[in-house]
Write a protein that binds this DNA or RNA. Structure first.
Length: 565
RNA sequence: GCCCCCGUAGCUCAGUUGGAUAGAGCGCCGGAUUCCUAAUCCGUAGGUCGGCGGUUCAAAUCCGCCCGGGGGUACCA
């Protein structure tokens, strides 16, 4: 259990006792809120519970705080409490509690930061889902990164996660794709070709045509039916998409074909279910979903006058299919250019009896690419000029992942290509990764200097780390920050907000770089001091924990922590 | 018209769901480093949190209206 959770538990306990002593019932929504004060001088954690109680018991917040503390047990956890400001209760963690963090990090290793909160809950994360009309390009990148990172966050807090890619290999777009392949084949075998107005012009279609000819021979490659060309092209493109995503360590558990929904009659079944629940009516020759009853701004047509579906209908059925496969929570990652249908889909899920909290849409805002002094707006419909693969080849998967994770999905972001290419510490990725590499190099250096790190609980007395020696404010600040990894991950997972992990990493890296560099001015602050083995061991224990924490946080972002740079 | 996201330092953005003196990175200016990686660090300056009202002990945060940027919207895939 992490420190924050433990403190919350004890505060809640104290709150219960306090209310009992007052003979009062717990008011709705009252809880001992806990936060990390902005200002370090106010301690490690603070609660505003006294201010909330003040109104209830009609005494001043500071007085309430004093009474409250008589019910609070901070043994082994809190070193010091104080009542400050308008009535905050501030907690300073006990020194041995911060040192205990190191033991925990060392014993949990790669598991530190994770939790089992979501154990037993199945969640489906659907993302990318670009139709296979061409290779992925830079306009798909934010979706891919946000989706995979959200999935990793769920995994980190114990959920059973599946990643799904949803696509369509029928419809107008796909027919055009098939026609394009037919014509490219004809062209390659020397037939005269007349190009229509609308076809996919990318050279990848020539490659696919060539592959088809190589595979089945020129005779068998020509004069096939449209369906054949469409399926072949889509299949080939899906393969390259899969390979491109693999280059960024993104893999899907399931590739879901839209046509399957129709083949299995799921659209009709879903409509029947909605009808049975009274969510559907007929008017003007069309079938309508009573979406306004479930929070949408207007009712929606689900079957048009000509008997065909609107684009909304199969999407509702697809969500229903996900629930039908036993997922407890369903997450979809969409660009802001596709967010219009979200209220309708939420309404439909609710109409079908699925609690609103189980259906999440992560809507990320548009990206502006800043490259060579030119700003260009990216959407999934634009951006073909840089492919996904070129971007990874040129910048590296880690940089791409960090840059797209760094910003809140809610924020429109500028992707600064020049900064991404920069390999100095101005580039936030390198700043963080270098902190990890620096830890590794310190461990190696210690070895070379003849004072190798002996582990936190080494039996050999000379190399045992005496953690109480880590008493400087800068060291304590680092230890406290390390201890906050679990809550950083947990909050990021709850809020579907990968950028919070980046913020955390930035903070930890900064604390470390600062401390390290101070050793240049003041030799007593250096990590390795051969004449002070006990202190060196203690600091190396901290470095070791730092290394673990940085690596674990980077892992949640899908980024490799490098040992040297 | 209606709906969604955003508006915070010169720039790019945080702000832990209503807390204490609003922060970081970059940039600017000034400084440190016989060094465990100079791929570093420290310091200064820089703010009407888009605007006006409201809610309360407390508002960048919640509510209403307005301004600005982006996106989406009709039995169209």
């Amino acid at each position: 259990m992490d420190l924050k959770t433990e403190l919350t538990r004890r505060l809640d306990e104290a709150l219960g006792k306090y209310l009992q002593a007052e003979g009062a019932d717990r008011p709705e929504g009252l809880a001992a809120g806990i936060e990390v004060p902005r200002n370090r001088e106010h301690g490690d954690y603070a609660t505003n519970v006294a201010m909330q109680l003040a109104r209830l018991v009609k005494r001043s917040p500071r007085q309430v705080a004093q009474e409250f503390l008589t019910h609070f047990d901070g043994a082994g956890l809190v070193g010091e409490t104080s009542i400050d400001g308008p009535g905050f209760i501030n907690f300073r963690l006990a020194a041995d509690a911060t040192a205990a963090v190191l033991r925990r990090i060392v014993s949990e290793g790669a598991e530190f930061g994770k939790s089992r909160r979501g154990a037993g809950t199945r969640v489906l994360v659907e993302f990318v889902s670009a139709n296979p009309t061409g290779p992925l390009h830079i306009g798909h990148a934010r979706n891919a990164v946000v989706g995979d990172t959200v999935a990793r966050l769920y995994e980190a807090v114990g959920y059973d996660v599946s990643r799904e890619y949803y696509y369509n290999n029928a419809g107008v777009q796909m027919r055009v794709l098939g026609t394009t392949l037919r014509l490219r084949v004809d062209e390659l075998v020397g037939r005269p070709v007349e190009w229509p107005e609308s076809y996919y012009r990318g050279s990848y279609m020539i490659d696919i045509a060539r592959r088809l000819i190589d595979e089945v021979g020129a005779d068998q490659a020509v004069d096939r039916d449209d369906d054949f060309y469409t399926k072949y092209a889509a299949g080939e493109i899906i393969k390259t998409i899969e390979a491109d995503l693999e280059a960024m360590d993104i893999g899907f558990d399931n590739w879901f074909l839209e046509s399957g929904i129709y083949e299995r009659g799921e659209v009709e079944r879903t409509l029947d279910e909605m009808r049975a629940r009274g969510a559907i009516y007929e008017e003007d020759g069309a079938v309508w979903f009573r979406a306004t009853q479930f929070g949408d701004t207007r009712d929606r047509v689900v079957v048009k006058g000509d008997g065909t579906y609107t684009y909304l209908t199969p999407d509702i059925a697809y969500n229903q299919d996900k629930y039908g496969r036993g997922y407890d929570e369903v997450v979809t990652v969409l660009g802001a250019d596709h967010h219009g249908q979200v209220p309708s889909l939420l309404a439909a899920a609710e109409a079908l009896g699925h609690p609103k909290e189980t259906l999440h849409y992560v809507i990320y805002q548009m990206v502006t690419l800043l490259k060579d002094g030119v700003a260009l707006k990216l959407s999934t419909r634009s951006g073909e000029f840089i492919t996904f693969k070129e971007m990874i080849d040129e910048l590296g998967a880690g940089v791409v992942r960090y840059f797209f994770s760094m910003r809140s999905p809610d924020a429109q972001m500028t992707f600064d290509w020049g900064l991404a290419k920069d390999t100095s510490m101005d580039n936030p990725v390198y700043y963080v990764q270098y902190a990890h590499a620096r830890c590794c190099s310190l461990m190696k250096k210690a070895q070379e200097e003849g004072c190798p790190y002996g582990g936190i609980d080494a039996a050999d007395g000379t190399s045992r780390a005496d953690l109480a020696l880590l008493a400087l404010p800068a060291e304590q600040a680092i230890l406290r920050a390390l201890g906050r990894l679990p809550e950083a991950i947990d909050t990021a997972a709850r809020e579907l907000a990968p950028h919070q992990v980046c913020n955390y990493l930035q903070e930890v890296a900064q604390l470390f770089h600062n401390f390290f560099t101070q050793g240049n001015n003041d030799p007593s602050l250096r990590i390795i001091q051969t004449d002070k083995p006990a202190l060196t061991q203690a600091r190396l224990a901290m470095i070791d924990a730092l290394r673990t924490v940085l690596a674990n946080a980077l892992a949640v972002l899908g980024i490799e922590a490098m040992d040297r740079m």
